[in-house]
Amino acid sequence: MQVPILKQGPYLIATIQSALTDADLVGLRDAIVEKVGLHRALGVIIDITALDVMDSFATGTLRDIAHMTRLRGARTVIVGMQPDVAYAMANMGLTLEGITAALDLEEGLAHLASPLPPDRRR
């Protein structure tokens, strides 16, 4: 299942609609990193509202995306994580270190738009 990546001004928005296989995740990673360069994007938002399970591979891939886009000049924000998913992940020690999370799409865009995030979390 492919994830659509939409361009919105200087940002890219990828909304995950359903559970993804590992191959899908790798495909998403490659597509985002490529499009960051293509569109000269400043920020990437990955919306995971629809995900009710996050395993270690998905977590690792999201982290890779954040670090790779960072190297290509764009910040990544993960938005819309479900409370139960957050709790399960924290419990398993999967904490998305160094990645910014935001409540929803609106928040994510506001975060990218702010020149210096108030809490300075990247």
């Binding site: 992940m89 924290a90 998305l96 409540l103 928040e107």
Partner: peptide, 13 residues
């Protein structure tokens, strides 16, 4: 500590 981590994953500090 877990609670703090989980809240961060939701985008709250």
């Amino acid at each position: 500590v877990l609670t703090v981590e989980s809240a961060r994953l939701l985008g709250a500090m």
